[in-house]
Design a protein around this nucleic acid. Structure first.
Lengths: 295, 295
DNA sequence: ATTTACATAATATAATTATAAAATACAATT
DNA sequence: AATTGTATTTTATAATTATATTATGTAAAT
């Protein structure tokens, strides 16, 4: 009857935080600092820490707060992902809606009440999801009752237009005067792409492959220093994720793709930005031209 | 206790519809056709027509439906705009929020309950507005309670980045292979721009001037035939509207602006697209560079 | 075959309320 | 001075309900 607690989600974030900062056993975890980091008050941090204490990951000392009870790299990943599921009831339903629409289970026009029944959601939760979808541009509220799905997800034309848009935006972002190479980012991207090309393309999950690919492109656009370029790429990538998840991924194309990604990094690191931008353009257009998803 | 009726809004739309189609006295107004046009059921169309009947604009015949009772060009505009206000309780509050944020009345972080009290809105209405704003990218939901305004509206940096984004997108849209000149649209745009340059810039309202300007640019991008380009321009223009409304418009620059707009049309109509695109780019960048709003 | 007109069903809003969670103020502790 | 721990206030969610509106099925009229 009340809202879901943030603490499961916060617990995960705390674990990710201590791992990212490579914290060691015994280090202090100040409440306010964590609260600021996750943009909440101290209250949900407290309850998250209490739960982590039960799991033995942190240790409480009276009037001194919580301390890491184990080296951060020793925290087992299994327990993380397990808890991640229960925490977010929205994401899976968001995907189910996308899937159901793409496979034709959901009609073009639907009412809120229908969706509440189908997915067994309270109105507030459903509306949150619908607004997110509408933000992503593939559903629209009708003036009277109901919502309609737009063609964005399902039409071949939109699919191709999306590739053109990405190719142009990313190329132009790279050509902006404000573009500044992020050599550290290049290095990390290089590692990921190498791992992916080095056999990773055969056993990584679809989501992991897609994320690696997206991160690469978004990292490049982030170098432009222009939030509008980055936002528009993020926006279209969220959309792309849904469509690409629905079609079978063509793993045979991945080695070529990673080689091209590495080539772009080569060009950028040797100050051949115009060349890199041109290559990036053909790289994206090529990807859009060859794949033919069943839409 | 129940929702607001659509009929005031529909009444306005019906009047706009018959005017746009230059319908004459006596023409039939089929329910289903209007319903399809406005994407609602026949019910709200019925009640809208009943209200128009009271105002003498349409006439009912038993079992035959409604007929226009006056030539569409004779319908007085005054009664239209008057009714437009009462119909939409959201738009004015949306603007008040923008204004209050830009002028610093609203703090960076606000709770829903606070906003409900300040603007005297039920939660559903407020949330609709907040989601719209969040879609436009200048507010964000926090993980716990409350929302934070983002820098998008208020920072000088974002303002300039927006101009760069527009310049690039619009130029590139014009260079796309899918670009197809819309000569009819050019003609209408030419009329508007001529009227604006021909004295209109002195007495048109801020909103009218801004709309004329925006329509011009969106018309150009629409010729690209790529919905992603058009969407991203529309998105950034909605944002721009808020900022530009808040600063005093510099009317002295309008004659130059309209001349440049007309020049772009000249170039496009004589098949000099590359030239037009290049000129468009400098046109937008010029506008962004010179103006210095108080942010 | 359309279209209207009416009856009925389905839908969404707003108001209300209980409740758990988040935010915050402040004294106590280090 | 900074941080914790507790108490208090504020907030948002979910469930419920009344009601006006929208949507729709169908017979009657054109």
């Amino acid at each position: 009857m009340a809202r879901n607690s943030l603490s499961p989600q916060i617990s995960i974030e705390i674990i990710e935080f201590v791992r990212a900062n490579e914290m060691r056993k015994g280090e202090h975890l100040p409440l306010q600092k964590l609260a600021d980091t996750f943009r909440v008050s101290r209250a949900p941090i407290m309850s998250a820490l209490r739960k982590l204490e039960e799991r033995g990951i942190v240790r409480a000392e009276a009037n001194r707060g919580y301390f890491l009870n184990i080296d951060s790299d020793k925290i087992d990943v299994a327990s993380r992902s397990e808890h991640a599921q229960g925490s977010d009831r929205e994401e899976p339903i968001y995907f189910r809606i996308a899937e159901d629409r793409l496979s034709g289970v959901l009609p073009e026009k639907v009412s809120e009440s229908e969706l509440m029944r189908i997915y067994d959601l309270p109105r507030t939760k459903l509306l949150k999801i619908l607004h997110r979808i509408s933000d992503e541009g593939w559903i629209e509220r009708l003036p009277g009752n109901g919502w309609t799905f737009r063609q964005t997800l399902t039409s071949r034309k939109s699919y191709e237009e999306g590739y053109v848009f990405r190719a142009v935006i990313e190329q132009q972002a790279m050509l902006l005067p404000s573009f500044e190479p992020n050599y550290e980012g290049f290095l990390k991207a290089r590692e990921v792409q190498t791992a992916l090309g080095d056999g990773g393309y055969e056993h990584w999950s679809r989501a992991e492959i897609f994320k690696a690919n997206n991160d690469f492109h978004e990292m490049l656009v982030a170098c432009s220093g222009n939030e509008f370029f980055l936002d528009s790429i993020k926006r279209i990538n969220r959309l792309r994720r849904l469509v690409e998840y629905h079609v079978t991924i063509d793993r045979s194309r991945l080695p070529k793709q990673t080689i091209e990604h590495l080539h772009i990094l080569d060009l950028l690191e040797t100050d051949r930005r115009t060349e890199a931008a041109a290559f990036l353009y053909t790289h994206i257009m090529g990807a859009g031209r060859i794949k033919t998803p069943q839409l």
